[in-house]
Structures are given as C-alpha cells and as structure tokens.
Design a protein around this nucleic acid. Structure first.
Lengths: 206, 206
DNA sequence: GTCATCATGTAAGCCGTTACATGATTGC
DNA sequence: GCAATCATGTAACGGCTTACATGATGAC
C-alpha cells in the first residue's frame, strides 16, 4: 500500500511541517539514505499521502509576516496570493504539509510492520526513525535484522571460500563479509543498549 | 547502451560458456551482488546481447557427448562434457551462450568505462571482474572510487554531527560513516597491492 | 504419478529517474 | 537584466520484479 518513501516522508513530518522542496535535503541529512531523491518521486508521494488523508497542506506561514497561521482552508488561497503579491519574504507559493492524526497512527503501523524489511537501506531508514517505536517493537526490529544478517554472513562466507574465485573476486567477497560483520556488531551494540535501558527502567519501577 | 547486468553476464562468459538458468546462481556465487536476479531480466539480456553479436547461442542439443566445435579452450570443453555425462542425458534444450570476439572487446571497454561508476554495487561488480583489466586501468578504477568515498565520508560525517539528530538517527549516521571507512580501508589495501605488484614487475624488467 | 528441480521465455506492472514546463526571488 | 536558487508539478521512459505459460527429467 505505502512504500519506503512514504514512511520516510511521514517520519520527517512527525517532527515538524515541511514543504516538498525541503524534504529532499532532509531525507539526506536526517535519514541518511538516498543521494537526492528526485522531485518526480516526492511530489506525487505527497499528493498521494494527502489523498489518503495522512497529511494535509497548510499555509506557508512565513516568519516575517507571521500571524497568518489561521488554519482555515478557505484562507489558504488568499494567503498564497498575498504572499505572492507582497514582495519580500514569501517565495513562490509553498505548500507546507502537516501530518494528520490518522497519519501519525498509520506511520507507527508502517514503521513497525515487518513486511518488506529486507534490505539494509530499508532497515537504516527504520532505525533512523526508531525513536517513534516502543522499546519492544525496536527490539523486535533489531532481532529480525540480526537473524537476516547472520544468514547473510554464512552465505557470503561460503562464497568467499569458493576455490574457483580469482584474487579480485575473492577480495570482493571477503570485503562483503567484513561489511556484514560490521553491521552485525552495530546491531548487537544497539540491542545491548536497548536491554540495559529496559533494565534500568525495570529498576526504577521497583 | 549496455547496463550492469550485461557487463556481469559478459564477465561470466569470459570464463566459460553458460546457459541462462545457470547464470543466476553464478551471479550470486561468483560476482557477489544481487540476491537472485530474476529470469525476467536474464533471458531478455541474453537475447539482446545476442542481437548485438556480443554473444552467440551454441545450442547444447540433448544429444550425448562429443560433437563439440572448435574447442580452443580446454576448460570449457571439459565443463560441457561433465555437464552432459553425469546423469542420463542433458535436460531440456538448453541454450548455452558463448561470448564472441566482439563481445570480449566490448566487455573490456565497458568494464573500464568510467561512466556510471557511482554506487557500491556497481563498483563491487567491476572489482570482482578486475582480473580482465590491465593494471593501470585497475588503478584508475580504484583511485576514482577512492575519491568518491572520501567525498562521501566527509558528507556523512557532517550529517553525523548534526545537532538535531536523536540518538537513533545519529547511530545510523555514525554506522554509515564506519561503513565508508571500511570501504576506504579496503580500497587502500587493494591500491597498495597493485603498486607493489607494479614495483616487483619493474624490478624483474630491469 | 506426482512433486521438485531444471530450463526458457513473455507480459504486466511498479518504482523511480530524467526531462520537460513554469514561475518567483535574490544577488551580482 | 541575468544567472542561480528556490519551488512545484507532469510526462516519458527504463530497468527489474512478479506472474504467467510451457515443458523435460529424476526421485520417491
């Protein structure tokens, strides 16, 4: 139904409102992935999320003018016009998006949904947004990722020991193995942090 | 013109003939990438390469051993024989593909072509096939990759120091940085190997 | 005799990019 | 006045996956 980009956008909007143009930079700077997602992906995604009622477009309340922030939708048009005619701050009619209550709900569901949790890009995105998950969902996510990596490590080690590989191909395989080991160490570190947090919480509750 | 999968397939065929079904496993086992490329990609790619005359189908008729064409490559002949001799007869009419002289030329050109050498998947593929490159082309490839990684490392370190990141998002960024560092160490290691090989060659030539 | 594996191919569709189209604002 | 950046959107296109269609062979 909704894909990775939708989750990423909702995740950004959980924090604060954004307009489309801004989302591109934020995706790189705050969520790590993707060297510049194109606008051809972002704007349609926003439109779709709006159609499903997970986000809504609000007026660009610009810092200088301010006080325009009366949320009525009928005022939106007028405000955009006034922003345009008024020289100075307001750029071209920005459409600032805000996540709805329904969107917040759906976001947490999507984020913890174990379906399509295959590749590392996907996982990194979810981890970067993990503060919106409950501790137990976080641990579940981490454990699932851990078992995937263990399987992957075994596979890549078998490949690395393939006798018929030349030194370059073997080097690639060995490096792939080291990459998976690094990922695994990271996950284990995150897991132990989660567990010690849970323990200290349990102690407090006593 | 030709894409990554084409290079990968040609690379496999440089070694020995393959049929389509077999290529899928080999892509994983020998070239590392892609958890199973689908046949919907492989067969059309083979057909296209054949249209351009880079490969040709040498139909392995279900018939028994022998009847083998100009076996310039002894290893290839041996592998085909072993495929047929073990069980009763060959399976369904396999189409075994062989790389042509033109294909070998084009392969080296594509492999050393610096265009579209962006992502790590692409680079890993090229490195896995690096034995088909000249030493200087290999060094060029490695140096280009190195400078990309240096730039990437700087970028991701800036992201990791972003004050507004929560601990999870920061952890993702820091882990990304460690990943790039690992890649970089690998490249540097490969580069020094290349250089010491060149030196020992130079000594011999003296 | 039917299931798993081997084997080849086509068609539909998804997801994302590039290219196109438009326009405001800022700074030189 | 002109370029660069900010800003939004649509349309065409490409690559890869899924699903579909077909069929041989070997194992149990």
């Amino acid at each position: 139904m909704f894909d990775v980009l939708d989750i990423a956008i909702l995740g950004l909007l959980m924090d604060r409102d954004h307009h489309g143009y801004e989302i591109r930079t934020q995706l790189r700077e705050r969520l790590g992935l993707w060297a510049n997602v194109s606008f051809g992906s972002i704007y349609p995604a926003l439109a779709r999320l709006a159609r499903y009622g997970l986000v809504e477009a609000v007026v660009a309340s610009d810092a200088r003018i301010g006080s325009l922030s009366t949320g009525s939708l009928s005022g939106e048009r007028a405000s955009l016009r006034s922003l345009r005619s008024a020289p100075g701050i307001g750029r071209r009619g920005r459409k600032v998006y805000r996540i709805t209550a329904k969107g917040r709900e759906e976001f947490v569901t999507l984020l913890s949904d174990p379906a399509t949790l295959d590749d590392s890009k996907n996982f990194s995105l979810r981890m970067a947004l993990a503060k919106y998950l409950t501790p137990s969902l976080r641990v579940g996510l981490l454990e699932r990722r851990r078992s995937d990596l263990v399987a992957r490590l075994a596979e890549v080690r078998v490949s690395a020991h393939n006798e018929q590989l030349d030194s370059y191909a073997r080097s690639v395989m060995e490096h792939a193995a080291r990459g998976v080991e690094l990922d695994l160490a990271w996950i284990d570190n995150l897991l132990s942090t989660e567990r010690s947090n849970q323990q200290s919480f349990a102690r407090e509750a006593k």
